[in-house]
Lab assay of single mutants.
Amino acid sequence: AQASVVANQLIPINTYLTLVMMRSEVVTPVGIPAEDIPRLVSMQVNRAVPLGTTLMPDMVKGYA
């Protein structure tokens, strides 16, 4: 199964992502692939992302 990117903490709206904020986990539904974690660093979330939430492409500015 493919691992997705999951929030490792509460990520406030407009926060620039860093490695410590994200982890990879096999979840349903599938979100942003874990292999894209390096690409996500320094990208901004466009909403608050609670701890344990799967990151979806529409949550990250400029990802989709």
Rank of each mutant, 00 (worst) to 15 (best):
A64E: 12
I32W: 02
Y63Q: 08
P57E: 07
T18V: 05
P33C: 04
M56E: 10
A64Y: 03
V45D: 01
I37E: 04
S4D: 01
T53M: 09
N46I: 14
M56K: 09
A64P: 13
I37K: 05
L55A: 01
A48V: 12
A7P: 02
I32P: 00
E25S: 05
Y16D: 08
A34L: 06
A3W: 05
D36F: 13
T15H: 08
E25R: 03
M59K: 02
A64N: 12
N46S: 13
R23F: 06
V60R: 00
E35F: 05
N8Q: 08
E25L: 05
S4E: 00
M56H: 14
I37T: 07
K61E: 10
A7M: 08
V41I: 08
G62Y: 06
V26H: 07
P29W: 03
A48D: 14
N14G: 12
L17W: 01
R47T: 14
G52Q: 11
S24A: 12
V5Q: 01
N8T: 11
V5K: 01
I32Q: 00
V60E: 01
V20L: 07
Y63M: 05
P38E: 11
L10P: 14
A7W: 02
G52W: 08
A34R: 04
S42V: 08
M56W: 07
G62I: 04
S24G: 12
L10Q: 14
V49I: 15
T53P: 01
T18C: 04
V30L: 10
V49F: 02
V27K: 07
P57S: 05
M59Q: 07
S42R: 06
D58M: 07
V27H: 05
P12L: 14
P29K: 05
V30D: 15
G52A: 11
T54S: 06
R39A: 07
R47L: 13
E35A: 08
T28L: 10
S24V: 10
D36R: 05
A1W: 04
I37D: 00
V5N: 01
G62K: 05
P57R: 11
Y16I: 08
M22L: 07
I13M: 12
L17I: 14
T54I: 11
Y63I: 03
T53N: 10
I11R: 00
L19V: 15
I13F: 12
P38M: 06
A3I: 13
M59L: 07
V45Y: 00
P29E: 09
V5Y: 01
R47I: 10
A1G: 15
E35G: 09
V20G: 15
A48N: 10
V5A: 13
E25I: 04
P38L: 06
A7E: 01
V20D: 14
M43A: 10
